[in-house]
């Protein structure tokens, strides 16, 4: 399949950064409960009432190409395969078919993952940076700026397990955003932040996009997608429904979901 350059509101180069080629993601999960026996594919007899191995086909053969300087919004209802796709692009989830190609190692900012719950925010900043391959010195120099960006000055010495979900999401975003990434994937990480933080992080995302970085943004907030993205991909049940200009795709999505306002 030849790559097509999709219509977008701002000019983008024709240099591909991420190529998603017929990606399939299948989870094999032990399920339990009433549903499990019906859908069960295997399972020993004596246990089959309780346990069943179910296959969940989360992403079904998606293909698209993303070019340098684009920022791509990913929308779709809960469980449509957005997060699975993002983790596959970041190389954190094994895929069962197809491949993802990228010009640089994509960095993912996901929901829920607390890095090291027993360590303080400050230590998490240092370790997160070291794991991403940055030097100790520059991480220590950046610690204050990161803390400030996350707005956590008062709490930075407390263990991360004591943080609220909004606080830890802010800290994770601040760690990831402290450096320019060629490819940054933000998976609903901003949804839990408050309005002030959201504005600050959207500004930072635009800044990164303008310095030739590529940003993926998964969000249920159509407003923040419209504010930051140059292209929107709509996924439903693991399949691509629409790909193109943000306003067009979001309008179509809103018709589908039955909402009439963009918020």
């Amino acid at each position: 399949m030849a790559a097509k350059i999709k219509k977008s509101t701002r000019p983008v180069s024709d240099k591909p950064v991420v190529v998603v080629d017929d990606v399939h993601i299948i989870y094999k999960v032990f399920s339990s409960g009433r549903r499990a026996t019906k859908g069960a594919t295997t399972g020993r007899k004596s246990f089959s009432r309780k346990l069943g191995l179910r296959e969940v086909h989360a992403v079904k053969g998606l293909s698209f190409t993303v070019f340098e300087g684009e920022s791509v919004g990913i929308i779709g209802s809960n469980g449509s395969g957005k997060s699975s796709l993002m983790r596959a692009i970041a190389g954190l989830t094994p895929i069962q078919g197809g491949a993802v190609y990228a010009s640089a190692k994509p960095a993912l900012l996901g929901v829920g993952a607390v890095l090291l719950p027993n360590l303080s925010g400050e230590k998490n900043i240092l370790l997160g940076g070291l794991a991403m391959g940055f030097g100790r010195k520059e991480m220590i120099e950046n610690t204050d700026a990161i803390t400030k960006f996350a707005g956590l000055d008062e709490f930075i010495d407390l263990p991360m397990r004591t943080y609220s979900s909004g606080m830890s999401a802010r800290l994770r975003f601040a760690i990831a955003a402290s450096r320019d990434h060629d490819i940054l994937i933000i998976d609903e990480a901003l949804a839990v932040g408050d309005q002030e933080f959201r504005n600050r992080s959207e500004a930072r995302m635009r800044e990164m996009r303008d310095s030739a970085g590529t940003v993926f943004l998964v969000s249920h907030s159509m407003k923040s997608i419209l504010d930051t993205c140059t292209r929107v991909i709509w996924i439903e049940k693991g399949e691509l429904i629409m790909d193109g200009d943000p306003l067009e795709v979001i309008n179509a999505y809103n018709v589908h979901t039955g909402s009439d306002t963009i918020d």
């Binding site: 950064v17 190529v19 080629d21 993802v100 990228a102």
Partner: peptide
């Protein structure tokens, strides 16, 4: 041209490969 060839031509590497 397949997407894989296209990606390789532009110097992209497979993500998550060991």
């Amino acid at each position: 041209m397949s997407l894989a060839d296209y990606a390789r031509e532009h110097g992209l590497k497979r993500v998550g490969a060991r």
